[in-house]
């Protein structure tokens, strides 16, 4: 037994695991600290970078709440995708920069997850040009979507709308998340600073309150650094 450990020490060490403390942390402490030390939502999408490895195999994670939150609404969404399968695949082939793209329904949200090369706005803009009709069909089913369709007549607003729904990508290292917060507040200092590293858990909690859905890390890549066309060319598939 560690020398000076008392009953209260043992009790307090286990406190965070108790239902009582979990309740207090979630329902009282978190809202309290969110009010006292407010946190801005961090922007979604890949971290801006000019480096080429960061600009291939980028992730888009869209979570779009359906207007009709019922099996009927979900079926409409499923139909919208399946009816347009040909259009989607032809569009993906001709946009030429998409590694993977998936549609998923999770709890009354239609989600679109994709891995693409290059700049996000170029990717969406080229898509509007090729499969704008599909976007209109899907986005029309989504809360707030009516404001940005038809997308080919609302290009800038549509791209912005999609960007706002793209999930924040929590950095791979815990402290880079602090750097994201600092950058958002215009703080570029390195040293000397007066931080409190033990506050990292609270900062993470409050950030996840501001950005309820996030992508954890920038994701694993089996062959990082290669574009769609490089992979297809190397494999002899044509590009």
């Amino acid at each position: 037994m560690p020398d000076n450990e008392g009953l209260m020490d043992r009790f307090v060490d286990r406190l965070p695991e108790t239902a009582f403390f979990k309740f207090v942390a979630a329902r009282i402490l978190t809202p309290l600290w969110a009010w006292w030390t407010p946190v801005k939502p961090l922007p979604g999408g890949p971290h801006p970078s000019f480096q080429h490895g960061d600009n291939v195999q980028c992730m888009m994670n869209l979570i779009m709440p359906l207007k009709d939150k019922s099996p009927v609404g979900r079926a409409h969404a499923a139909m919208a995708i399946s009816q347009h399968k040909d259009a989607i695949f032809a569009g993906l082939n001709n946009v030429g920069t998409v590694h993977f793209a998936r549609f998923v329904i999770v709890g009354d949200n239609i989600c679109m997850f994709s891995v693409y090369d290059g700049d996000f706005t170029n990717y969406i803009r080229d898509f509007i040009a090729t499969i704008g009709e599909v976007f209109d069909a899907v986005v029309g089913l989504v809360e707030g979507g009516e404001k940005v369709i038809p997308c080919d007549k609302n290009v800038e607003a549509f791209i912005q709308w999609v960007h706002e729904r793209d999930l924040y990508q929590v950095p791979d290292t815990p402290t880079d998340f602090l750097r994201d917060q600092e950058r958002l507040n215009g703080d570029k200092a390195v040293a000397p600073v007066n931080d409190d590293l033990t506050l990292l858990p609270r900062k993470m909690v409050l950030q996840l309150r501001a950005n309820a859905n996030v992508s954890l890390g920038s994701g694993y890549r089996a062959y990082p650094g290669y574009s769609v066309a490089q992979v297809r060319k190397q494999l002899g598939l044509g590009w």
Partner: peptide, 8 residues
Amino acid sequence: GHIVQRVA
């Protein structure tokens, strides 16, 4: 010329 983003 042939480019990856054909639509562009």
